[in-house]
Simulated assay, not measured.
Amino acid sequence: MKVLEEGKNKRKSRLKKIIVVAIIMLLIGTVCQSIMVEKEMKILLPKGEIFNINNHNMYINSIGSGRNTVVFVAGSGTPSSFTDFYRMQMELKPYAETVSFDNAGFGLSEKTDLPRTINVLTEELHELLKKSGQPSPYILVGHSLASLEVIHFAQKYPNEVKGIVLLDGGSPEFYANDSEVKSYILNRISAGLRITGIARALGSLDIKLPLLGENLRYNGLPEDIKKVDLAMYYRYLGNPMNLEYIKNINENATEVMKNGHLNNVPLVIISSDSGEDWEKSQKELLHWSNRSSQETLPNSSHYIHWTNNDYVVEKIKSLIFLTSNIEDN
């Protein structure tokens, strides 16, 4: 009995030591994460401009030239529009003026206390495009949850939109009934990995997490842009500001549904092969315009503009040429 008791005490002692070491490591990781974030944001600044919109500063990046303006709208939680759309903007710059921007609380855009309702989001984008001198009508390219923003923008400003491309975006019907809880939980788990420095430690071992498509995005960027991308990722993974967007998903989708059909706006839907429920959502999107098309790409991921970049770029180019020809005729 005495031997058994001694064995139990040793196991308890080892467990306590492991717990203490783990706590110390997490504390060290938390301090290092805080120090590195501040250091990185002072030296790694992407090119672009800042405009005061709705009493907070918003970042916008414009590349290229031409008769057409292509506006990229990032999906929920994406740390930086600059790095997420960098490759596509560079490849499309001979064909059009391309624009990416950060919603409030992401990238180089300031936080705001204004509610993240769909009307506020579209009005802020509209004002940002006007203040930065981007000529309309626009081709809007929205990834993921940004499908709601680009559809609603076309509803509010129909004369300023001549085409829409959705990059694995859900239908308003899907988002109206989707559980906001799972997005909240993923955000909080991601925040834990960021705050404790675990995500950064894994990154130093060349392990890029699939969260927010970082494992795909990082590998597809040139070396100098990779530095900006990692800085943004380590700063905004599990961004608490994103909770303000998440809690309005259902309400925003319902508002979009109330505003109705897009009529003859060309709508190009590019979808990942993510199961039956998602496939249903993609088919629902077909009914939002009289001029819609949809294709599901095999071996694709939710960040479809990284797994299938060449295809996406060609689709956007096709829409640029199509709308230009219609205007000429």
Rank of each mutant, 00 (worst) to 15 (best):
K2H: 14
R11A: 14
R11C: 14
S13V: 06
S13P: 07
I28C: 06
G29Q: 01
V31H: 03
E40C: 01
G48W: 10
E49S: 14
N52K: 13
M58E: 06
G64D: 06
G66I: 03
F72G: 07
G75S: 08
S81R: 07
S81G: 15
D84K: 08
R87D: 10
M88I: 08
Q89A: 00
M90K: 14
E91Q: 12
F101A: 03
N103S: 15
E123W: 07
E124Q: 15
L128H: 10
S132Q: 01
G133P: 11
P135Q: 12
I139V: 10
H152K: 12
K156M: 14
Y157D: 04
L167K: 03
D168H: 04
P172H: 02
F174L: 13
E180A: 08
E180Y: 01
E180P: 04
S183G: 07
I195P: 05
R200M: 03
A201F: 11
G203P: 06
S204V: 05
S204P: 05
S204E: 15
D206T: 12
E214R: 06
R217M: 15
K227F: 02
N239S: 10
E244A: 13
E251F: 00
A253W: 02
E255G: 00
E276Y: 08
Q282Y: 02
E284I: 02
E295Q: 13
T307S: 15
T307P: 09
N309L: 09
S324Q: 13
N325F: 08
